[in-house]
Nucleic acid binder design. Structure first.
Lengths: 351, 351
DNA sequence: TTGAAAGCGCTAACAG
DNA sequence: CTGTTAGCGCTTTCAA
């Protein structure tokens, strides 16, 4: 093979021909040092003489060399790749109705790149711990960031037992055997409830899906906030199977069909759902906010631009991304960081 | 080291202890075959006796073994990782106003996972070919999919010279030295122009940024379509620096300030921009579609739900994702596939 | 159909 | 500060 190569390659004049150096050995030869010295120099190790280091780096750059990441990964047993797992829509038809999660993804991506980590994007196909346990090895990633817990966090507890390094964006609960980062969903709900109470509302409709832990917290917060004012206040539920506009719109339509509204406020599990509710309310002849006050969740960019502009609860995705990454690296360093909740903020607009 | 390990590890009773087998050697020993045979079996090679293969696989599964991807990658010189490069917003404030690109990302992700390829998500930080050339080696990816060309395709032509395997979502041009996949932007523009002509419109405002090749094509299509009907028709331009709602809204506000509208139709470079235009028009006292007809681009999920529902041009992201991946693999197999344009469709709603 | 040997390109350990 | 030696875990010759 080596011989074959030598034969098949045209012998170009040496000088001026600056073919990309293939391996570290090439650089070592060019710099007249040993391979490990090159390795050290490129890692900016203090063990290497400054002048030598500079010379080696110059040669590497000049020859367009960069270390073979796969060899490096094999040797160091570190891939510097983090898998980010989220629920990408399975079919193209089922449109991506989740601007929030992509914003979070962008922020996680930024936080990872600051640490020189690569981001492997995975779709959450499975709710089984073993699938991810296997992925850890088979994908060659160092750890996981799960963006969302799904409807049932049990598999995450299962995964925690395997010592797989991971963190989760979602509901935070002290009994969880893993590290989670999430907005303070309960507090977010309270914010909404209080606001309704201030506005004199007593019957709030919660649109969500309580199988999601985060949603359940938001709903409980709503109830607590609402009752701070008047204990007679009540929360009614509208359960939806998914958080697409269509599903929410349809559910709201049905809720409003025929009978007069049994509520004077709506707290939606997401802004998209709130927007759907807004339209359904209008079509039912109800005015917002005069007849029904509406609050969403997430403060997606578009929330400010619908008409009327949506009052909503904001979560700080930038901080969230940074924290998720930071916690994961603490885990990779052998620590057992605690879960954290991030503050939420009520953004009052016109609904 | 080996000795150290033997000492520090507790000698657990052999039986019943099913610790995850670490290497292929372990499996080989357990199956009483050689390492290469295990390798072949796990690759479902026809060279291995069916019964042996089955036995080996059973053992591997039982012990929770999976091949070390980094070793495999080093040996085969294939990482099975594709870098997908898109322009993620740099700051958190600058919100992700690009639902379309995320839909495309989701579709690319699906197409890759069908081929058992992993997706490395990268932010387009650089417009320099060398940065990506280096990434090819340093990230250890097999190829690139660029989602968007940026304002200047020159660096892509530069990159093409390096023989880096890549494909691009964006404007398609026969003179490009690389493979691109894109919607037929020109045809999309024509669709909009024709529609306006049918509605009797003669002066169309194009909101976009002609530095983007795709935008320029859309604008040219618009002009062509519009003039098919009456040659007196004209296109006016409103250039915007970015495609955020805020920028578009502001630009439109200024355009409409004071003087009466010099146009009776608006073709926006994206749905988000169209939505901003819709609001600005309404605030200027102009009715849609009576006074000004509006057409967007992309048919993002929310386009159907704004009021009035937005007429727009749809691009098939599902097919796009599949094609991008297919073309890239043709390139990786040594072929030189041609660029393709995907059909566009006018979705008539109420604007 | 299987096994023995070699080596992908790198970095860690140790010696100097 | 630098070099020598070894080997990460796998797949690919090649030989049997």
């Amino acid at each position: 093979m080596a011989k074959l190569k030598a034969v098949s390659e045209r012998q170009l004049p040496r000088q001026g021909v600056r073919r990309a150096a293939k391996t570290m050995d090439d650089i070592a030869r060019l710099a007249k040092v040993s391979k490990p010295t090159v390795s050290r120099a490129l890692q900016d190790s203090p063990l290497v003489n400054a002048a030598t280091k500079e010379r080696i780096i110059a040669i590497a750059v000049k020859h367009g060399y960069s270390v073979n990441r796969n060899a490096q990964r094999l040797r160091t047993r570190r891939s510097s790749i983090i898998a980010v797992v989220l629920h990408l829509p399975q079919q193209s038809g089922r449109a991506v109705a989740a601007p929030f999660i992509f914003q979070l993804l962008a922020d996680v991506s930024r936080a990872l790149s600051i640490r020189n980590q690569d981001l492997l994007l995975c779709s959450a196909e499975s709710d089984e711990a073993h699938a991810y346990e296997r992925m850890l090895a088979s994908k060659g990633v160092d750890g996981f960031i799960f963006l969302g817990q799904g409807t049932n966090g049990a598999w995450l507890s299962e995964l925690a037992k395997t010592n797989a390094p991971f963190v989760v964006w979602g509901a935070v609960d002290d009994t969880q055997p893993y590290c989670a980062v999430g907005s303070d969903n309960l507090a977010g709900g309270v914010l909404a409830g209080r606001r309704f109470a201030q506005l004199g509302r007593t019957r709030a409709l919660f649109i969500g899906n309580r199988a999601h832990a985060e949603m359940d917290l938001r709903r409980r917060g709503l109830e607590a906030g609402l009752k701070e004012g008047r204990s007679i206040a009540a929360v009614i539920d509208l359960e939806i199977a998914d958080f697409s506009y269509e599903t929410a719109y349809q559910a709201m339509k049905e809720k409003l069909a025929g009978k007069r509204a049994q509520f004077d406020a709506v707290f939606a599990g997401s802004d998209i759902v709130a927007m759907a509710a807004l339209v359904a309310l209008r079509e039912a002849g109800l005015r917002t906010p005069e007849d029904v006050s509406v609050i969403g969740y997430n403060d997606i960019p578009f929330a400010a631009h619908v008409s009327p502009p949506l009052t909503t609860i904001r979560q700080d995705t930038h901080q969230a991304g940074a924290l998720l990454v930071e916690k994961l690296f603490q885990i990779l360093d052998g620590a057992r960081p605690k879960s954290v909740t991030l503050p939420t903020e009520l953004i009052v607009r016109q609904t």
